[in-house]
């Protein structure tokens, strides 16, 4: 077992366990912290795939900005105690069973997929480097890049308008 494989299995186990803990834990603050661990594990996967730019952006944007926003909202609304009303057990079980069925269907669909057995290169390959991605982003993808700035502007205005007190 090479070091890459050991890292892959470790990061996968970490991601799945912390993702489960997001769903299971009663306290929303623990859910947020578990989600941060999941994002760190996914970033580790990106770096393992030599997608360094995406890995670091994932850390900064998701684990750094978005999760801090979630944490702020939870702390500000004082939701960090368990006040979720106990729901019908059968409904909960139905949710788990239907999620499991979805997973089963996906696994069955990908079982005979033609990509099976192909290798996703982990150490080599330089398309994940910032230089390569930046050249592609500012040449052929420059229009979507600029449009996304308009999206950000409208999202910012929308958040301010929605969150404004009173009307």
């Amino acid at each position: 077992m090479s070091a890459t494989q050991i890292l892959f299995w470790f990061l996968s186990a970490l991601a799945i366990v912390s993702a489960l803990s997001v769903v299971i834990s009663k306290n929303p603050v623990y859910s947020v912290l578990s989600l941060i661990i999941t994002f760190f594990a996914v970033s580790g996967h990106y770096i393992l795939l030599n997608a360094q730019f995406i890995g670091i952006v994932n850390l900064i944007v998701y684990a750094g900005a978005i999760m801090v926003l979630f944490l702020f909202v939870i702390m500000l609304m004082n939701l960090n105690q368990d006040n979720e009303p106990q729901k019908n057990k059968w409904l909960k079980m139905a949710g788990v069973v239907s999620g499991g069925c979805l997973m089963l269907v996906f696994v069955a669909a990908f079982k005979t997929s033609e990509v099976n057995g192909k290798i996703a290169q982990t150490i080599d390959g330089n398309i994940g480097l910032t230089e390569t991605l930046g050249k592609a982003l500012f040449n052929e993808y420059v229009v979507p890049f600029e449009i996304s700035s308009i999206l950000f502007l409208s999202a910012m205005v929308g958040a301010v308008v929605i969150g404004k007190k009173g009307d």
Binding site: S12, S113, K118
Partner: peptide
């Protein structure tokens, strides 16, 4: 790594 491990993880 084989691609199917990534598929199953995702």
């Amino acid at each position: 790594m084989n691609i199917e491990y990534y598929i199953y993880l995702a």
